[in-house]
C-alpha cells in the first residue's frame, strides 16, 4: 500500500471508487423519487423512511464525504493533467473517437455540483435536514408541487440531470477501466451498461418535474 495515493493511478483509484459509490447512491435516490409517481402517500412514506432509518442516517455523512473526496481529487488530477501540456496546440484535437463526455468530465462535474448546491438548499435543507435537526419540515409532496410548478425550476433541473447523464455515461465504465476490471471484450459492454445506467437514472429524475409540470400531482 506504500504511497499508492501519490501515484497518478492511485489518485484515479480514489476517483473511481468514490464515483461508483456516488452512482450507487443515485440509484437509491431516483428510486425514492419515483414513488412520487405512484401516490402522495407512497412518496411521504418513502420520505419518512429516509428521515428515520438508522442506516440512512449513518450514510448521509459518508455520502457527503464521498462527494468531497470525489470533487477534491478531480481538482488535483485536472490541475496536474493540465500542466502536462504547457504549450497548447494551435489546431484543436480533431480525433473523432473520444466521446464529448469523456473530454469534458471536469466541466460536466462543475455543472453538476453547481446545481447540486441549489438542489440541496431547495430540497434537502427543507426535508431530511429538518428532521435530523428535530424540526418538522415542509410537507415533501407540497414542496415538489410548488417547486416543479415553476417552469424555470423544471428547466434548470432538466439541464442539471442532462449534465449528470453525460457525466455518468463516461464515468461509470471509466471507473471499471481504472480499477483494471476491463478487457477488449468488456470495454464495449461496460460502455453500453454505463449508457443504460445513465439513461435509467436521468429519465427517472426527469420524470418527476415533467409529472408535476403537467399537473399530474395530487
Amino acid at each position: 500500500m506504500s504511497n499508492i495515493f501519490s501515484s497518478s493511478i492511485g489518485k484515479k483509484l480514489i476517483m473511481s471508487l468514490s464515483g461508483l459509490f456516488l452512482v450507487t447512491f443515485l440509484l437509491l435516490h431516483v428510486s425514492i423519487n419515483l414513488t412520487a409517481l405512484f401516490s402522495r402517500e407512497a412518496y411521504e412514506a418513502a420520505c419518512a423512511f429516509m428521515d428515520t432509518n438508522i442506516f440512512i442516517q449513518i450514510m448521509v455523512p459518508v455520502l457527503a464525504l464521498g462527494f468531497v473526496i470525489h470533487i477534491l481529487f478531480s481538482i488535483i488530477i485536472t490541475l496536474k493533467n493540465r500542466n502536462a501540456r504547457p504549450v497548447k496546440y494551435a489546431v484543436g484535437n480533431n480525433t473523432e473517437a473520444s466521446s464529448w463526455a469523456a473530454k469534458n468530465m471536469f466541466v460536466l462535474g462543475l455543472i453538476v455540483i453547481g446545481f447540486l448546491g441549489l438542489h440541496l438548499t431547495h430540497f434537502w435543507a427543507k426535508m431530511q435536514l429538518q428532521h435530523f435537526l428535530g424540526h418538522h419540515g415542509e410537507n415533501a409532496y407540497e414542496l415538489l408541487t410548488r417547486l416543479f410548478g415553476q417552469w424555470y425550476y423544471c428547466a434548470i433541473y432538466v439541464v442539471w440531470i442532462i449534465a449528470l447523464y453525460f457525466h455518468i455515461s463516461h464515468g461509470f465504465w471509466s471507473a471499471f477501466q481504472t480499477l483494471g476490471l476491463n478487457n477488449s471484450k468488456w470495454i464495449p459492454r461496460l460502455q453500453l451498461i454505463a449508457k443504460l445506467y445513465a439513461i435509467v437514472v436521468a429519465l427517472g429524475f426527469i420524470s418527476i418535474p415533467v409529472y408535476f409540470w403537467f399537473g399530474l400531482g395530487q
Binding site: 497518478s8 484515479k12 500542466n83 502536462a84 473520444s98 463516461h170 471509466s174
Partner: peptide
C-alpha cells in the same frame, strides 16, 4: 508508473483518443 509520473506526463481519463491515433 513512478517514472512516468515523475517525468510530468498526465494521467489517463479514458478518453480513448490514444487508441484512435
Amino acid at each position: 508508473v513512478a517514472k512516468m509520473d515523475e517525468l510530468g506526463f498526465g494521467g489517463c481519463t479514458n478518453t480513448q483518443a490514444c487508441e484512435a491515433e
